[in-house]
């Protein structure tokens, strides 16, 4: 399970100033027996962490859809609001610089056992955000533990595919996937502000 986005500079511009009030909601397209409900997350201590971030959205419909629980994973709050937000922001900044990027984001579930909230929703052990730049034909990914004190790692798509068992960017060549790319270092909100961006 993952979210795939085609981010462009124009769409990011278009998305600024979208409506400020939104509703988290269960995804009615998924059978009731399989979908996450709001009450699963209630009193869990976990954030409803967006897989595709709200700040990437470009119109009212995409903004509404991105608050579907199908786009959420239980995320440690310090992670969601800290380093993960830094990764999301770094990818938007890179889109503004490069013009367009293909982005695939998803949870990773590793280990023999997993923890669940609400008796239903499994907590990912890690999260990834993979990026393909169609101009420079380069690809790479951020990888981070779903933990409060986690630091993002930067890996190649080949390494990420090995880890997840998912084919990410199926039409991108193995050479590009193996090579990796220089992804910008994620910066905190405070660091970005103090640098005037």
């Amino acid at each position: 399970m993952y979210a795939a986005e085609h981010l462009t500079r124009d769409r990011l511009m278009q998305g600024k100033g979208l409506k400020r009030k939104n509703q988290f909601h269960p995804d009615e397209h998924i059978p009731a027996s399989d979908r996450a409900e709001l009450h699963h997350y209630a009193r869990s201590g976990y954030d409803r962490g967006h897989v595709a971030p709200s700040a990437d959205m470009f119109d009212e419909q995409s903004q509404h859809e991105c608050f579907s629980l199908a786009n959420m994973v239980p995320q440690v709050p310090e992670n969601n609001r800290g380093p993960w937000e830094g990764i999301e922001s770094a990818v938007r900044k890179m889109t503004e610089k490069e013009g367009e990027l293909y982005v695939v984001t998803g949870p990773i579930f590793q280990g023999e056992n997993l923890q669940r909230i609400g008796g239903a929703v499994m907590i990912p052990t890690r999260l990834f955000k993979a990026v393909y730049n169609p101009q420079s034909h380069e690809a790479g990914a951020y990888l981070i533990d779903n933990a409060a004190d986690a630091q993002p790692q930067r890996v190649s798509i080949a390494e990420l595919e090995n880890l997840t068992g998912i084919s990410i960017f199926p039409s991108v060549s193995d050479d590009i996937k193996a090579k990796g790319m220089e992804l910008p270092e994620p910066k905190s909100y405070k660091e970005r502000k103090s640098q005037g961006n």
Partner: peptide, 15 residues
């Protein structure tokens, strides 16, 4: 203080 619902443990179905 508010109480947090404890998580439960399940076998990883993705293995």
């Amino acid at each position: 203080q508010v109480t947090i619902e404890p998580t439960d443990t399940v076998k990883n179905p993705f293995n």
